[in-house]
């Protein structure tokens, strides 16, 4: 078994060798480690992606907008992830984004998970028939088993910042609150100190 530390170091160095700057390669190391800790195939997706870009110059967005597309070619998941992460406060404002033509979209997940943590809100990500919910960099839930999943490309990826909301209705809350009050003690006048 490879350790997280080895996965991070090898991913970082391989990314540097593939042409990413040291600073971006450091981000990649952390993100691949994170994917692997969730048992998602970060290493394999990265390996395939770095092979794909051997002779091409990967591209990221130059602005972050509601709709993001390139005139030519596909978005690099790394540059896109780094750009989105740096612009977390803008993501918070935009709330919904779509990105056309993204290579290896699974590599984008850890960046979005970090954004979820930074802005303190859940993020829903959709591409192809996959729906993923990212919760404050604490857990990833998905309608699809992402283990062993290698996805080379998606035509469209959407990002939706979910407003914090209850998962229960008011009556459930009232019922539970009522029960909790049974731990309280009735206060008499003699306890008033003000």
């Amino acid at each position: 078994m490879r350790t997280s530390s080895e996965i991070e170091t090898v991913s970082k160095r391989a990314s540097r060798a593939a042409g990413f700057s040291w600073g971006v390669s450091e981000e990649i190391g952390k993100c691949i480690k994170s994917l692997e800790l969730y048992q998602i195939s970060g290493l394999e997706n990265l390996n395939d992606y770095l092979k794909k870009i051997k002779n091409i110059r990967p591209k990221g967005p130059l602005e972050i907008e509601h709709k993001n597309s390139l005139k030519e070619g596909n978005f690099c998941p790394i540059y896109t992830g780094v750009a989105l992460m740096d612009a977390s406060s803008r993501i918070m404002k935009l709330k919904t984004l779509s990105i056309q033509s993204v290579d290896f979209p699974i590599l984008l997940i850890p960046f979005l998970n970090k954004i979820s943590y930074k802005i303190g809100k859940m993020i829903e990500v959709k591409f192809d028939d996959i729906e993923i919910l990212l919760n404050l960099n604490n857990y990833i839930s998905s309608n699809t088993d992402l283990r062993q999943k290698i996805l080379k490309y998606t035509k469209q990826l959407s990002i939706n910042v979910i407003e914090n909301r209850d998962t229960f209705d008011a009556s459930v809350w009232d019922s539970l609150y009522e029960l909790s009050t049974e731990t309280f003690v009735e206060e008499s006048d003699s306890y008033h100190h003000y």
Binding site: S21, W22, G23, P61, D86
Partner: peptide
Amino acid sequence: NTVAKFLLLNQDVRHVVR
């Protein structure tokens, strides 16, 4: 400009920005 915008064109110095 924000640092995010600066970095879009200057990823070569990202390690020292950090």
